[in-house]
Nucleic acid binder design. Structure first.
Lengths: 338, 338
DNA sequence: CTGAAAGCGCTTACAG
DNA sequence: CTGAAAGCGCTTACAG
C-alpha cells in the first residue's frame, strides 16, 4: 500500500536505520546524508506509519477521556481543557461517551481498546467501587468528579461539601430563610449530588435554618428539563422557598424558566444559585450566581497525574487532588445593577 | 510485557492460529478446542493487542472528527450524534479541536496521525480550497458545514440560503419591517456566514424590504460575547431594527442579553431568530425561535459517506448531501402564550 | 479443522 | 556515523 521506510532507504541508497534516524531527528547524521534521505522522503511522499511505531514502542500517545454527556456544557468545556492540557504533553485525546450508564462506564474502565490508549481519564456517574476493584486492565486510570470510591486510583475533585456550603452561606447572608436544594437523584444511593446535598444540610444547620426533606426536590437527570421538573415539583407541593441551590447550572437554568413562567421574580421572590459556571449562565436575561470549579486546573492535574504514571512512577500511591473553586455572584442572587 | 497469543497457545497446547480463530469467533473450531483455548485465555488474562491487529489489517476502526469549538453547544451536540452514528458501524471517534484556525485545520487534513485514523470528518472555518487541493494524505475526508470548496470531497451541508430565507420570511410574515442580520465576519472573504447573509438579502429583496449594509452588524467570532457586541454596535449606530436574524443561536443569545439590558422587549420591540436549535434556546426566560438543522441526519450521513469510502467505493465521485432543516418558532418572535 | 511461516512497518540493541 | 537483524503481536494465505 503505502510507502515504507524500506522504500525510502532503497531510493536513497542507505539503510533503514539511517532513514529512521532522519525521520526521528536524531543527532548523529551528517548533513549530506540527512539531505539525501530527506529528498527521497519528499519524492516518495513518505509518511511514517504510526501504528507500527506504536506496536514497537508499546505506547501510542493517545489517552481516552470518558464523559457522561457532551451536551452538558460543563463537560464540553472540561473536554476542551483536557485536550489542551494533553496537547502540551504531546498526547492526543480520544473522547468516549458513557451517557452516565454503568454498563458503558465499566466497559471503558475494562480497557476495551487494549494497547490503543495509554491511559484513561473517567468522570463516572453510576460506576461502583466493586466495578473498579474488579478491573483487570493495567493501564493508568484517573477519576474525575464527585463520586467517591474505595479503590486505589488517582482522583481529582474539588471539595464539594465546602463549595456547597459557600453557596448556601451566600444565600443565608443575603437574608434568605427557606433555601431549597434541587437535583438529588432518589434512585442512586451514593449519587453525585450526595456531597452537595450534605454541604447544603450542614450549612443550613450551622445557620439554624430549616433543612428538612420538604426542601429537597429530586430529579431524574442532570439537564435543564430535569431542573425544571424538580422546581415544578417543589412549587407544586407548596414548599414556598425563597431561594434555591441547584445541583448544577443546567438544572438551575431549567428552574429559572419555571420560576419565570409562574410569575415568580428572580431574585426578588426566589434567589437562585447553580454549580459549574458554564458560559450560558453569564448570558441569560438573569445572569446566574454559581459555584465555579477551576476547570483548567482540574484538566491540567488530571493529565499530569496520568502522564506521571505513564512516564515516571506507575506504582506511586494513589493521589487525591483538590483543585480550587470560587463562588461567582451574579444577578440571580443580587439582582440587576450590583 | 503483556500476555500474547503465543503465551495462550503455549498454555493451551495449540497453535497461534487456533487461538486467533477462537479470539475472533471464527466458525470452524470444535467446541472442545474452543473451551480449552478459552480457559487458557481466562487463566492468563489475555487481552488482544489491537495495535498489532491494526498494523496487520491496515486499518484501525478509528475515525477523527475535527470541530472548531466544543464549547459551542451546536458542535457538542453534533459530536454526540457522530459518536453514536460511528458506533453503529463499530467505529470509534477521536475528537480534534481546531479552534477554527486555518493552521490547525490544515494540520488535521494533512493526516498528522497517519495510519492511526481511517478517515476524517472536518467542519472547517478558515480552511481554503488550495489547502484542500494541496492535501497529500489519501485517507477519506468528509466535509461538514457551510464553507464551500472546489475540491473533490464529500460535503454534508443543509441549504443555508433556503434556511436563512425561511427565517426572514417568518419575520416579515409577522409584520417586521427593519430586519437586521448580525454575525457576519468582515475579515474573512468566503466566510461561513456568507450563505445565510445571502439568504437574508434575497428574501428581503423579494419582500421589498430594506436590506442595506446599515442593517448588517459584523462580529469577530461565533460566541455569545460576539453576538452581544454586534447587537450593541447595531443599536449604537442607530439602526433601529424591529427584528434581528443572527448567524447562530449563541450570537442570538448574546444579542438577547443586550436588548434586555437596554430595556428593549423581545419580541414586542425587537423579534429575534437564531440558527442551530441548541438546547439552551429552549430554556431562556424568552425561548428562542431558530432554524433547526437535522443534526442526527448530518451526523449519520457524514459517517455513512466515510464508511462507504472506507469499505466499498473509495473512488466514487464526490457527493454533496443536503440534510433537512426546520424553522422552530418560539417566544422570541411570537411572545408568550403562543 | 489445525499448524508453520511470512510479513504488516517500525525501533532498538548490537556491531563495526 | 551507519548497517544488518531481531522482534513488537497480530492475521492471512498456504498446506495438510
Amino acid at each position: 500500500m503505502g510507502v515504507s521506510l524500506k522504500d525510502v532507504a532503497q531510493r536513497a541508497g542507505v539503510s533503514i536505520k539511517t532513514v529512521s534516524n532522519v525521520v526521528n531527528g536524531y543527532q548523529h547524521v551528517t548533513p549530506a546524508m540527512r539531505a539525501r534521505v530527506q529528498q527521497a522522503i519528499d519524492e516518495l511522499g513518505y509518511r511514517p506509519n504510526l501504528t507500527a511505531r506504536h506496536l514497537r514502542k508499546g505506547r501510542t500517545g493517545i489517552i481516552a477521556l470518558a464523559l457522561p454527556e457532551l451536551g452538558n456544557p460543563y463537560f464540553a468545556e472540561l473536554a476542551g481543557a483536557v485536550i489542551d492540557a494533553a496537547a502540551r504533553h504531546d498526547y492526543t485525546v480520544l473522547l468516549d461517551h458513557t451517557a452516565g450508564e454503568r454498563r458503558k462506564e465499566i466497559l471503558v474502565t475494562q480497557g476495551f481498546r487494549t494497547h490503543v490508549i495509554d491511559g484513561l481519564i473517567l468522570s463516572p456517574i453510576e460506576l461502583e467501587t466493586p466495578d473498579l476493584l474488579a478491573r483487570t486492565d493495567s493501564s493508568p486510570l484517573v477519576l474525575l468528579g464527585e463520586r467517591e470510591y474505595d479503590a486505589p486510583y488517582d482522583h481529582i475533585v474539588i471539595d464539594n461539601v465546602a463549595a456547597a456550603r459557600s453557596a448556601v452561606r451566600h444565600l443565608a447572608g443575603t437574608g434568605r430563610r427557606r433555601i431549597a436544594f434541587i437535583g438529588a437523584r432518589s434512585e442512586i444511593a451514593r449519587q453525585p449530588a450526595h456531597l452537595r446535598l450534605r454541604g447544603w444540610r450542614e450549612e443550613l444547620a450551622a445557620c439554624g435554618l430549616p433543612h428538612g426533606d420538604d426542601l429537597v426536590a429530586t430529579a431524574s437527570g442532570y439537564g435543564r428539563a430535569d431542573g425544571a421538573q424538580a422546581m415544578a415539583d417543589l412549587l407544586d407541593r407548596g414548599a414556598r422557598p425563597d431561594a434555591v441551590f441547584a445541583y448544577n447550572d443546567l438544572q438551575a437554568i431549567g428552574a429559572l424558566r419555571v420560576l419565570t413562567t409562574r410569575g415568580l421574580r428572580v431574585p426578588e421572590d426566589v434567589a437562585l444559585v447553580g454549580f459549574d459556571d458554564i458560559e450560558e449562565g453569564r448570558y441569560g436575561t438573569i445572569t446566574l450566581t454559581t459555584v465555579s470549579p477551576d476547570k483548567k486546573a482540574i484538566a491540567r492535574q488530571a493529565v499530569d497525574c496520568l502522564v506521571q504514571r505513564l512516564t515516571g512512577a506507575p506504582d506511586a500511591p494513589p493521589r487525591r487532588v483538590r483543585p480550587g473553586f470560587d463562588l461567582v455572584v451574579r444577578e440571580s442572587t443580587l439582582g440587576r445593577g450590583h
